[in-house]
Design a protein around this nucleic acid. Sequence first.
DNA 1: ATGGCCGGCGCAGCCGGA
Length: 259
Amino acid sequence: MKIVTWNINGIKARIEVLLQWLRETSPDIVCLQEIKSVDEGFPRTEIESLGYNVATHGQKGFNGVAILSKLPFEDISRGLPGDPDDVQARYIEASVAISSGVIRVGGLYLPNGNPLGTEKFPYKLRWMERLIDHARQQLALEQPLLLLGDYNVIPDPIDARTPANWSGDALFQPESRQAFRRLLNLGFTDALRSTTDEQIFTFWDYQAGCWQRNEGIRIDHILTSPQATDRIIEVGVDKYVRGWDKPSDHVPVWVKLRT
DNA sequence: ATGGCCGGCGCAGCCGGA
């Protein structure tokens, strides 16, 4: 089965691109970030007509995540535990039954954290600590688990075309990278990096001709638990979607798993 | 030449993104 993460940067502006990509690639599960929509405004019926179940966790104007699945959801959890005062819609989790058991999927939109020196950066780091705590609990279940989404973290220098451009950026701060490594060190695998040493990007800024100059970064990641890692067949990035009309600034990242 | 964009909201121009 094919499981994908994609920051679509606004579902209302991207619905035609999303439907076209769904028709062409027919993924089984899709985690979407930055839907920038309340649940009632999400174009659910158009997506359902392609054979998907839809679960959303939205808010007005910003953030917002969703999961699409051809298989029915077993149970859905909205919001990242650990801070009842956090009103930002950045996490959704669901299970689907497969022939060999159950697979759990967490779709996340990790805070950007810029600019440094504001409350946004400590919020990012606190959010990462909550994610680590939650991931540790989920790993204890010893099931196939995927935590995928827009992590807003450049893990290593190879993951940026020009690392020096990001030295003052929250995405490439030592604290951000260390928290990402601590998450991995719980027992997760960075699925894409486990299959290639190549420089591969998932985001190109709209500004300054970044796409044309290939000034990209890799910030959208699929983390797999040991039970999911053992099932990996192939990992890839649908880079060509960035060249479509009215593209998102992110592209889909996918993994094929044995069921 | 070292800047260049985009979406949401809501109907001008600001906020947020990365």
